[in-house]
Computed example of a mutant assay.
Amino acid sequence: MAAHREQSGTDDLEPVRTLGIIGAGRVGKVLARLAREAGYRVLVAGSADPARIAATVAAVAPGATAAEASVVARESDAIVLALPLPRYRELPVDALRGKVVIDAMNYWWEVDGLRSDLADLRTTTSETVQRFLPQSRIVKAFNHMGYRDLDEEARPPGAPGRKAIAVAGDDDEAVRAVMRLVDALGFDPVLAGALREGIKLEPGAEAFGADVDATELQAMLDRFATSQRGLIVARARRDAGTDAAP
């Protein structure tokens, strides 16, 4: 279990001005649009040559720029990973060194195939990504709400019925930066805890797919330990002799 990087006083991180998105699928495009509407410079990388997706990116998120993944990583203050999870090993490790990296990916065994490394309940998929990117500041967010709800539910702060996005991470500064980003993009941020608590946001958990306000999302996170999924996770971790279940 990674320890929190405790911070005191003001954050040392520079404000996020340029948001990078690696993955030009549905979630990536929605987040690009929301970020542009919130005033961020947005860079998007897809699996295709940037020239091939430039028109699509510009149409969905006017003002966003298509670029190579390495360029997106180097030039962005924070980077969202919105590509299929098994492709995380294609990420530019060096270019992401020291960056706030937001893991919005999920493991879908029906699509991704049976992967023991991604289905291991003794850890989380975000911790797996963190091990691959040991010098990056991984934060789990934007994975548990469906792309249609992300697209339709953004609201200004304080608006009635504003929905919530949970955030989990071990680096307190990075977590605060991502929570500010969640708020800027139109959702109330809810702290889920350390990166290992991201298991509460993965497929199979009650919060996965949730389109609810902050109070209800917090209640879902609090119920995880006594849920069927939570009990399965706790048993797997207890049998493995790992730390107490989330």
Rank of each mutant, 00 (worst) to 15 (best):
A104I: 04
P160T: 00
H4K: 15
R176Y: 00
G20P: 01
G28H: 08
L201N: 06
R89W: 04
L43K: 06
R137C: 10
R74Y: 08
T125C: 05
E75V: 02
T18G: 00
P157N: 03
A59P: 11
I53Y: 05
N143S: 03
E152D: 07
T65P: 12
T125G: 04
R180C: 13
R223G: 01
Q7N: 14
P15V: 11
V71A: 13
K29P: 05
I165T: 04
Y107L: 10
D211L: 12
R17D: 02
R17P: 03
A58S: 11
V175R: 08
E206G: 15
A104S: 09
A240G: 01
V71I: 06
E75T: 06
D112M: 13
A95N: 08
V101T: 05
E206P: 15
Y147I: 01
G39M: 02
K200Q: 07
G23T: 11
E37A: 14
A205L: 08
D103P: 01
A184W: 04
D222F: 03
L114E: 10
L43E: 12
L150H: 12
F208A: 07
A35T: 07
V175T: 08
R237K: 04
R148H: 15
A38H: 00
A104T: 09
T124I: 09
A164F: 05
R196N: 11
L34I: 03
Q130L: 01
T123M: 06
A166E: 02
A234N: 09
T125S: 08
A210L: 12
R122P: 12
E206C: 15
A240Q: 01
L201G: 09
Q135N: 08
K163E: 03
A67H: 05
M1F: 15
D170C: 08
V72L: 11
A174S: 05
F224S: 09
G193T: 09
K29N: 10
R180F: 06
V178M: 11
A59E: 06
R237Q: 04
R36D: 14
A38D: 01
S116C: 13
A38V: 00
R33T: 08
E37S: 13
A234T: 13
P15R: 03
V139P: 06
R97H: 02
M1G: 15
A174R: 03
E216D: 12
L181K: 04
E206L: 14
R237N: 06
N106D: 06
F142V: 03
F187V: 10
R196L: 12
G46L: 05
E153L: 13
Q228G: 09
L150M: 14
V167G: 00
D222Y: 02
D243M: 10
G204M: 09
I79Q: 05
L191Q: 15
P160H: 00
L121V: 09
A59N: 04
F187H: 11
A210M: 09
T215I: 01
E14M: 10
N143D: 03
L221W: 01
D172T: 07
I102K: 00
G198W: 03
Y147N: 00
A2V: 11
R74Q: 07
D117V: 02
Y88F: 09
G230I: 03
S76Q: 07
A3I: 13
A184T: 03
A244R: 13
A73M: 05
V93F: 01
P15C: 05
A205Y: 08
D213V: 10
A69Y: 10
D117A: 00
L85M: 04
S126M: 09
R89A: 07
A2D: 15
P156Y: 02
V93I: 01
V167S: 00
